[in-house]
């Protein structure tokens, strides 16, 4: 993999941790979280697995400020709030159909300052080139393939230049090969940032995560799962890796059976 990428115009933000203490949230009278504690380590990838509907995306939305807690504190490692310090990437690329690729990746600047500065546009072009979209800067999203659209969304996330990046199943709609490539690109481009990756794919977590958590139960609890040796993207495919993978799969199946009793199980 290539060297860690540093944004030319960036302040090179210092890694920032995230702390969640005593978060509470209920949906329709059913408690989703009660007194939930969770930490994201500064500058590391934290992967979150678990049955669908358990609240993984909701936890991510709480950190993003898109859903309000009914109690508890969510703050950055320096004690300040998270406002303006996160970038968000969803499963849906959320590209605006009326803007070209360049307009889409510089959307944040347009929304905040009304326009994208020339330096930012230049940076956007460099980044688009790097993810293989250099020749598509003036094309509209409708003409792009699924992989290209998600690459554009990745560049838009990166251009925001935030210390914390929240990713909600960003690769799950892609075909296997494109997903494999995009995982590597994302890991390399987002190196040094604090990343929370919500995923339903255990192999994705094993490939990208510094730490892996499994969410289960009602109200939801977070359990730490073992992570294979080595740095993300460089893990040896050995016996210990396969043991960890098998153990992780077993725990996920158990969590899923607990979530849906009567739905079979092993």
């Amino acid at each position: 993999m290539s060297a860690p990428f540093v944004l030319p115009a960036s302040s090179n933000p210092t890694p920032l941790a995230v702390q969640i203490r005593g978060a509470r949230l209920a949906f329709g009278g059913v408690p989703l979280f009660s007194d939930l504690d969770f930490d994201l380590e500064a500058g590391r990838w934290t992967c979150l697995l678990g049955p669908s509907g358990i609240g993984k995306s909701t936890l991510l939305r709480l950190i993003a400020g898109l859903t309000q807690t009914e109690g508890g504190i969510i703050s950055a490692g320096d004690g300040a709030g998270l406002e303006g310090r996160i970038a968000w990437m969803a499963q849906d690329d959320l590209l605006l159909p009326w803007l070209d690729v360049l307009g889409n990746v510089t959307l944040g600047a347009r929304l905040r300052q009304g326009r994208a500065a020339p330096a930012l546009t230049e940076l956007a072009q460099i980044l688009l080139h790097r993810v293989g979209l250099g020749h598509r800067t003036h094309d509209r999203p409708a003409t792009l393939s699924g992989g290209e659209r998600q690459r554009a969304a990745l560049v838009r996330t990166l251009i925001e230049d935030r210390p914390i990046v929240l990713m909600d199943e960003p690769f799950s709609a892609l075909d296997a090969i494109t997903r494999w490539r995009l995982q590597a690109e994302a890991a390399s481009l987002l190196r040094g940032r604090t990343v929370l990756l919500v995923t339903h794919d255990p192999r994705e977590a094993l490939r990208l995560g510094h730490r892996i958590f499994i969410m289960s139960g009602t109200p939801a609890c977070l359990g730490r799962a073992p992570c294979p040796r080595g740095e993300p993207l460089q893990r040896p495919d050995d016996e210990s890796f396969r043991q960890i993978e098998a153990a992780l799969l077993g725990r996920l199946v158990a969590a899923d059976s607990e979530q849906r009793p009567g739905d079979g199980g092993p």
Partner: peptide
């Protein structure tokens, strides 16, 4: 599209800019 509005919120867009 609610996703677009969520995206704008994470980008600190004012109601007018949104």
């Amino acid at each position: 599209h609610p996703g677009w509005l969520d995206l704008a919120r994470t980008m600190q867009a004012s109601p007018w800019a949104t």
